[in-house]
Amino acid sequence: MKRSSLSYRRSGAAVLALMLAGSLAGCKHKKAAAAPMAPAIDSGVTPTATISADPVAIDQGQSVVLNWRTTNATAVSIEGIGAVNPSGTQTVTPSASTNFHLVAKGDGGTMDASVRVTVRVPVAPSGDTGASSNLNGDMGTDAAFHAAVQDVYFGYDSYDLDGKAQSASAAAASFLSAHSAVRVTIGGYCDERGSAEYNLALGENRANAVKEALVAAGVAPGRVRVVSYGKEKQFCTEATAACYAENRRAQFNLDR
């Protein structure tokens, strides 16, 4: 799955990665970023943090091995697990899809990393809209949801649905029509270029464009919630065209 291969890192990690890669050329923005400025990382060495999970998708009741590594950190914790060693592994058995969020704090600042473990929840026999899943009916699992519903990608500074985006929206609409109890959120995202405030509005338009397509295909508007993240939550933090394209999306999630 595409999503699992994306490491969801914060901008700080990207700076470091970029510095190491020495790939600053050709991007003004990145040049400005070359010197760490925020007071938080003015002194000391910025910690690094990576986390991975194996496998990234399990059936409910199965286990997954988390593997993390940090450097220059004085305090390391994983949300939901608590304080952990700077580097290590741990076997966990999440009952629902979980974002494991690693936070490394050091003298030089804070760095975080996260990995998402998707848990395939067994199908409830009838209209169970409980807290663990609001999927209903025959094949309603998170995995099935994400298999059937793909994220929608957009062109530069655009919130128009192109052919690919329309078919992605149509697929999502047919899934929602088949699973009448499922409610979704659509997150609107932008690449890191441009201005933060404008990008929040643009992200809103992207998510709304997808919502409108769903509504036009017969999905009740009340089942779809729209949240714009602008460029505040980047999937990919490199200054490359591929990365920008990756970030310009409307992402579906089950609304819990």
Partner: peptide, 9 residues
Amino acid sequence: AVGSGARGQ
């Protein structure tokens, strides 16, 4: 502002 986010000045 010059730059943005944690790298902003």
